[in-house]
Write a protein that binds this DNA or RNA. Structure first.
Lengths: 200, 200
DNA sequence: TTGACAAGTGACCTTTCGTTCACTACAATT
DNA sequence: AATTGTAGTGAACGAAAGGTCACTTGTCAA
């Protein structure tokens, strides 16, 4: 029950940082949430900033493992309907996975203060999603599912509205259901505009 | 030279809050930036929180005056080219106006802590822009500039990518030139997709 | 059994925070 | 000329912050 305290500190820090920000978080409260006393924290991390850096290391590594590597790319959909449902699955995961939600919030709160947070924020909110959809759209164009166009532009036009709705859910969780419905409506609109006619 | 100290405090607070957040801002530094001593602040505002609330009042009022009212709506463009250049004008203003940039940053940093900031953030980042473009697209459909479709969906699909690039400029100002170019490319892509053929 | 070490405690330190207050300087009112 | 009110000063306050340290406890290897 010793080694995982270090891990539990990191998770508690993610939780508090995501709610109150780095400056708004204090070590006493962080320790108390783990039924520790504040000096206990310092057996595992030498300072508050060290916790922050370890957390960012973790977030960067996690991003690389789960979103940055080629093998974790979702498969190219086989139909437009498949594409819509793949989108919905992804959105549901990213909106409901507490760890990911907290990560986005932390990056949002600290992006102007910390350069690494800033870079990771851009990946999370813009470039990562766009790159992923660029590959998917390239594949879909080859399959003849959507009309040939600049896949990167399409990916940007697809990813950013979805990203905006994810942010909305982070900000106002009570609007989650509406936002999810809006993602689906947008996705269907998108395939109607760009989809290659496969009329029955 | 007395009355405007209260105003200068508000502007200095906007500046510091946008850079360090509410918790990260301290009264001493705020006063020093105005060549005041910290206790001087308290002649004008009874507490740090009072400054925050006054600033939010100001931001909400400003938004209502400049973006919320019908008379400040940009005119419906006369051509697709006109639409693109109107977009570019708006984006350039919103990206380069320091006050607006700082306002967005403050809302970004405090959206999870303060309910009013949260509501205003949603307006700034999502619903406000979407509503504006909904009216513009409705007008453009009536003029036959773009094909008839759900104007709200088009507005959402147009506003959110632009909003994403505005956020990118706030986060990484050194990418501003690229982001502006991307806005223009996206705008031209958009009118190509939705524009009613006006071939020569 | 003993020794060593990692984990956790509680008292304490220094610094910084937001805030207060008695006071001064000065401009406007009577 | 006397008075009043406003803006600003500088010292001080208590609370809370991050961090240190001597100490206890429990676990495991020798």
């Amino acid at each position: 029950m010793a080694k995982d305290t270090k891990e539990r500190i990191l998770m508690a820090a993610l939780d508090m940082f995501s709610k109150k920000g780095y400056e708004g978080t204090n070590i006493r409260e962080l320790a108390a949430s783990l039924e520790l006393v504040k000096s206990g924290i310092y057996k595992h991390y030498e300072s508050k900033e060290a916790i922050w850096n370890a957390l960012l290391d973790r977030m960067i590594a996690y991003y690389g493992e789960h979103f940055g590597s080629a093998e974790h790319l979702p498969p190219v959909p086989d139909s437009l309907e498949d594409f819509v449902s793949m989108t919905m699955r992804m959105v549901n995961i990213t909106i409901h996975d507490e760890q990911i939600v907290k990560t986005r919030k932390v990056l949002t709160l600290e992006q102007y203060r910390d350069e690494r947070a800033r870079d990771l924020a851009t990946k999370h909110f813009l470039t990562g999603l766009t790159e992923m959809f660029t590959r998917i759209f390239s594949g879909m164009m080859e399959k003849g599912l959507i009309r040939r166009d600049d896949p990167e532009m399409l990916a940007f036009a697809y990813a950013t509205p979805i990203s905006a709705l994810i942010h909305l859910c982070d900000r106002e969780p009570e609007k989650t259901a509406d936002a999810i419905a809006q993602v689906e409506a947008f996705s269907r609109h998108f395939v109607k505009v760009y989809g290659e006619a496969e009329k029955d």
